[in-house]
């Protein structure tokens, strides 16, 4: 491991603080919006904002280069979860075309202490994750879509996020830098 890697790795926070802070945020959103669908959207948007910045941190820590194929991307996403949330989702259910896969979570720090009340069954509690994936991949010229197939909070045995490759984004020059 490189010297810088070790230095950066030291910065950790207790996952309960993270869990409860996220919980407070979701609770607040549920209070502020009447519609659960709007809460899902807002969580995704927040995740997107986090993702576009988190990817830099990922690249700085891992020093990883371009992905060769989408399988490569899947592994990097998996290692991202390890670095940032300390969990390793399994990669499964590849589509025959190799453009979609599932991430399965046995445990998830976001949902520790969480129970969904009946009126929140449409809530995608962890929807922030799909936003993070979209934001992070967009910054490395990939458009991906992701959604929940299973959710432990809704009594499924695992939480499964489906991730699908949409297209490669062409290099866009930031405004004012031509």
């Amino acid at each position: 491991m490189s010297r810088t890697g070790a230095r950066l790795d030291a910065k950790k926070v207790n996952s309960e603080l993270f869990t409860l802070t996220y919980g407070a945020l979701v609770t607040q959103l549920l209070k502020d919006y009447e519609n659960v669908e709007d809460v899902n959207k807002q969580l995704e948007r927040m995740g997107y904002n986090m993702g576009i910045r988190l990817i830099e941190d990922f690249l700085a820590r891992t020093g990883s280069g371009r992905c060769y194929d989408f399988r490569d991307t899947a592994e990097k996403i998996q290692s991202g979860f390890k670095i940032f949330l300390g969990i390793t989702p399994t990669i499964t259910n590849w589509s025959p075309a190799g453009d979609a896969f599932s991430l399965c979570f046995e445990t998830n720090p976001l949902t520790e202490f969480v129970e969904l009340p009946d009126h929140c069954l449409n809530l995608k509690y962890c929807n922030i994750l799909t936003g993070v994936l979209r934001g992070a991949c967009e910054m490395v010229q990939m458009e991906v879509a992701s959604w929940f197939l299973q959710d432990q909070l809704k009594n499924d045995s695992v939480t499964e996020i489906r991730v699908k490759f949409v297209k490669r984004l062409e290099d866009a020059i930031p405004a004012g830098e031509d």
Binding site: K12, V13, T21, L25, M50, L54, L85, I128
Partner: peptide, 26 residues
Amino acid sequence: SKGKSEVSLSCYALLFSELVQYCQNR
């Protein structure tokens, strides 16, 4: 839980930043 598991600080900082921005907008 024993409360020993950890997540990365950058992850927390970005979440907190979203929380602050959300509050600020309201």
